[in-house]
Simulated scan of single mutants.
Amino acid sequence: MKTFRTAAVIATFSACLLTAPVQAANNGDELYQVEAPSAFSMIADLVIARPILIIGTVAGAGLFVVTLPFTAPVGAAKHSAKSFVVEPARAAFVRCLGCTETGRYQDDNQ
């Protein structure tokens, strides 16, 4: 009986969490006005996309270090850092779960 109650509580809590984007869209939260992702896209983003993007960020940091001797003398180190590290990190850590665009991050230098 305890297993059933635990499963019911977890299912109820999960259902409440999955309705948070809908509630945020109704409250005028600008992050969710752009997109209101479905539960399936949130799960796929959490399980598949985020780990790949985090691995891409680490690999991009390694590539940035390798290319630094070639990009620093010509002044392109900032551009390569943005391409190799910042953009994958922004996609992995700044955008909302299940969204395709970044959320609240505003880059003034674009």
Rank of each mutant, 00 (worst) to 15 (best):
V9G: 03
V9R: 10
I10A: 15
I10P: 09
A11H: 08
A11C: 14
A11T: 12
A11L: 15
A11M: 14
T12D: 02
T12H: 04
T12W: 12
F13G: 08
F13H: 08
F13Q: 06
S14P: 03
S14E: 01
A15L: 15
A15G: 11
C16L: 15
L17D: 00
L17R: 06
L18P: 05
L18C: 11
L18S: 06
L18H: 07
T19N: 03
T19A: 13
A20C: 07
A20S: 05
A20M: 12
P21C: 01
P21G: 04
P21L: 03
V22S: 10
V22P: 05
V22E: 00
V22Q: 07
V22Y: 10
Q23H: 13
Q23Y: 11
A24W: 10
A24N: 13
A24K: 15
A25S: 11
A25L: 05
N26W: 06
N27M: 10
G28F: 04
G28T: 05
G28K: 10
D29P: 08
D29Y: 10
D29T: 06
D29V: 09
E30T: 08
L31H: 09
L31V: 13
L31S: 12
L31D: 13
Y32H: 11
Y32A: 04
Y32Q: 03
Y32D: 01
Q33A: 06
Q33Y: 00
Q33R: 11
V34P: 04
V34I: 13
V34L: 14
V34Y: 06
E35Q: 14
E35Y: 05
E35L: 11
E35M: 09
A36K: 15
P37T: 03
P37K: 07
P37N: 04
P37E: 03
S38F: 09
S38L: 07
S38R: 08
S38M: 02
A39H: 09
A39K: 05
A39Q: 06
F40V: 13
F40D: 02
F40N: 03
S41C: 03
S41L: 10
S41T: 13
S41K: 12
S41G: 02
M42L: 05
M42D: 00
M42S: 09
I43H: 02
A44L: 10
A44D: 05
A44C: 05
A44F: 11
D45E: 05
D45A: 06
D45L: 07
L46S: 09
L46Q: 05
L46P: 00
V47N: 05
V47E: 00
V47L: 14
I48M: 11
A49K: 15
A49F: 13
R50S: 03
R50H: 03
R50W: 01
R50G: 01
P51N: 02
I52T: 03
L53H: 00
L53K: 07
L53M: 11
I54D: 08
I55Q: 07
I55N: 04
I55V: 15
G56P: 07
T57Y: 00
V58F: 02
V58I: 15
V58M: 08
A59R: 08
A59K: 07
A59D: 06
G60E: 10
G60A: 04
G60I: 11
A61E: 10
G62W: 01
G62E: 05
G62P: 06
L63G: 15
L63D: 08
L63M: 14
F64L: 14
V65R: 11
V65W: 04
V65C: 12
V66K: 12
V66T: 13
T67P: 00
T67E: 06
L68Y: 08
